[in-house]
Amino acid sequence: MRIEQKVNVNAPRHLIWEYVTEPANYPVFIDGLTRWEVAGDRHTGLGARYRMLIRVGAADVGGLIEIVEWQPEGDMAWSSVTGVDQRGRWRLRELPDGRTRVTFRFAYGVAGGGIPALIAERVAAISLNRRFHVSLLNLKRAVEEQAGSEATPAISR
């Protein structure tokens, strides 16, 4: 199952990159995240691992994920090591009007196959679509606030 959502953010690309690559921000802007911790020595970057769980239906699902693609200010992708099979990606692209298009892609598969797995994937998609929609709006709000505060010169007395 594959989910894709996009949002245009009124902020420079580097600010959004800094935000989505900082693990401490994830519990703040990802809706329904019940567990998020750095696993291992690497805090961020290629090879960094995180233990994550997100509430979907009656359970917290997720597992151990690892960053497998890292193109600064462009693409960051991760893949599951244990737990639910998943692969995700942030893609940041500059728009002609100076804004940044943020694309979030998330693909997952329920183990076992068969009709129950097929139904479970679709049922989970309803919840995940809603969660990721809220998460992208949270991201947009947070980064635009940050961009606004950086653009406004500090008033000195």
């Binding site: 009656a58 359970a59 183990a111 129950p116 797995a117 479970a120 049922v123």
Partner: peptide, 22 residues
């Protein structure tokens, strides 16, 4: 792992299960 989907469906759709403070 391969059979959790059926239990998850029952727990989610039929029983609207909610487990707190795991």
């Amino acid at each position: 792992r391969e059979n959790l989907s059926l239990s998850w469906l029952m727990a989610t759709i039929w029983f609207r299960g909610e487990v707190r403070n795991m």
